[in-house]
Amino acid sequence: MTESKPKLSDADASPPHVGPGNRLAKARSVLGMSTDEVAAELRLSSRQVMALENGDYESLPGPTYVRGYLRNFARLVGLPVDEILAAYVEQTATAEAVVPVSPPVERQVKSSDRHVKLATYVLVVVLAGLVVAWWQSRQQETASSLDIVAAAPQESIASGPELATATQGPAEFAAAADAATETPPSATDGQSPDAQTDVAVAPETAMPAPPPEARLILRFQEDCWTDIRDGREERLVYETVKAGSTRALAGVPPYSIFLGNARGVTIEYEGRTVDLSPHVRGVFARFVLGESPERG
């Protein structure tokens, strides 16, 4: 036994490329066992034990079995199992690399692949963007329709003082018009009604593109069916308006007006009250008010 120790340590010191078989064979001979005895213990044939010792793994069934045999062998002769298995792995690593266990399977694209993930995220972001864009366009649509509803009362409120200033201080208007048209001060000479026409005309000359809008104010003393279209055939009112309400309209003249109950309505056009009596037929009135800007 005293002799066996240096021999075992020799086996330990041997370089790893020697393989597990040599170490097992040495340990076996140290214990004084024959291959047949080992084979009987492990229920293997002596041919298989020889193959294990010589590293002839080709003649053995397969890696799983070889590992099992080596483990049992190592335990039988008292060698550390982990070291023997590690040596086996080291020895066969290169051999295994050469011979693939199964034919190389074409790699399947998986969801965890980076490019698939990236594409997914891009797709999701694009979809989210589209949804947001659609949502915003919807919001704008509803907002613009709300604007139309909200605009009418605002105009009616705003038009009052504006018109008052127009009638009371034409000079101010004229000054504003001057600034816009840069006409010589002769415009200021024209007082009262002339000044107003100037004002009406001045922006027209300055900006010919949008047709000028003329103000029409309707005051309802009684309920009245009202249908008003402006020169662009745009329907400004098309409903029964309640008594006591006031409508201020801005559009392109001429206005074609139909009033179902003409006696209950007074109309102011360009600051002047319009006499409806020539147009009234029975209870209703149908007439055209104002002139188209081309002709004016």
């Binding site: 492990l42 229920r43 293997l44 799983t64 079995y65 590992r67 099992g68 045999y69 483990r71 049992n72």
Partner: peptide, 9 residues
């Protein structure tokens, strides 16, 4: 059983 026994890793 008289068979060689291999414990799987």
């Amino acid at each position: 059983t008289g068979l060689p026994i291999v414990i799987a890793d």
